[in-house]
Simulated scan of single mutants.
Amino acid sequence: MTRSLLTGLKRGLKHRCPNCGEGRLFTSYLKVRGTCEACGHENGRYPADDAPPYFTILIVGHLFIAPVLLFPFIWTASPFLVVGTVVPALAVVTLTLLPFVKGAVVGAHWATGTVKPLQ
């Protein structure tokens, strides 16, 4: 069975089982469902570990923080005002993006066949 990386990424970004695309991938915010409710595929065996936070920080840093540094507001306003407005906004963006990135990482692991080693 050939597994497409693009299919795994798309299904993961939608928070769906990478195998069937029907079942939910998460039981809560970032907890991967052990087995798919639709097809019975074992999704808990795909190791996400530190990749989702790393990629999320990389995305937020390049797409949000770098452009924000171009606004004169950052350099001329009071540091308390800047921190009070920019940090909460970045926290919301980061926490919103994290489950999508984790789903994509699980989908990529499904496509490449990377599984946790037996312990």
Rank of each mutant, 00 (worst) to 15 (best):
M1I: 10
T2L: 03
S4V: 00
S4Q: 02
L5V: 10
L6I: 09
L6G: 04
T7W: 00
G8Q: 03
R11H: 12
G12Q: 04
G12C: 03
L13D: 11
L13H: 12
K14S: 13
R16M: 06
C17S: 06
C17R: 06
G21C: 03
G21V: 01
G21L: 00
G23M: 09
G23Q: 05
F26Y: 15
T27F: 01
T27L: 02
T27W: 03
S28Y: 11
Y29R: 03
L30D: 10
V32T: 15
V32Y: 14
R33K: 06
R33M: 01
C36I: 11
C39Y: 14
C39H: 12
G40K: 12
H41N: 04
H41Q: 06
H41K: 00
H41C: 01
E42F: 07
N43Y: 02
R45Y: 09
R45P: 06
D49E: 15
D49C: 04
A51T: 02
P52C: 07
P53G: 08
F55M: 14
F55V: 10
T56M: 04
L58T: 15
I59Q: 08
V60R: 03
G61D: 10
G61E: 10
H62E: 08
L63T: 15
L63C: 14
L63M: 14
L63D: 10
F64S: 05
I65H: 09
I65M: 08
P67Y: 02
P67S: 06
L69K: 05
L69D: 13
P72L: 00
P72T: 05
P72M: 02
F73D: 09
W75D: 08
W75S: 08
T76K: 09
A77Q: 06
S78K: 07
S78L: 03
S78G: 06
F80D: 12
L81Q: 02
V83N: 12
V83W: 13
V86S: 06
V87E: 07
V87K: 05
A89N: 07
A89G: 15
L90V: 11
L90F: 12
L90D: 15
A91H: 02
V92E: 09
V93G: 04
V93L: 08
T94F: 10
K102W: 02
G103T: 12
A104P: 04
V105R: 10
V106E: 03
V106R: 04
V106P: 04
V106L: 05
G107Q: 07
G107W: 01
G107N: 05
H109F: 08
W110C: 00
W110N: 00
T112V: 08
G113E: 13
V115M: 12
V115D: 14
V115P: 13
V115Q: 15
P117E: 15
Q119D: 11
Q119P: 12
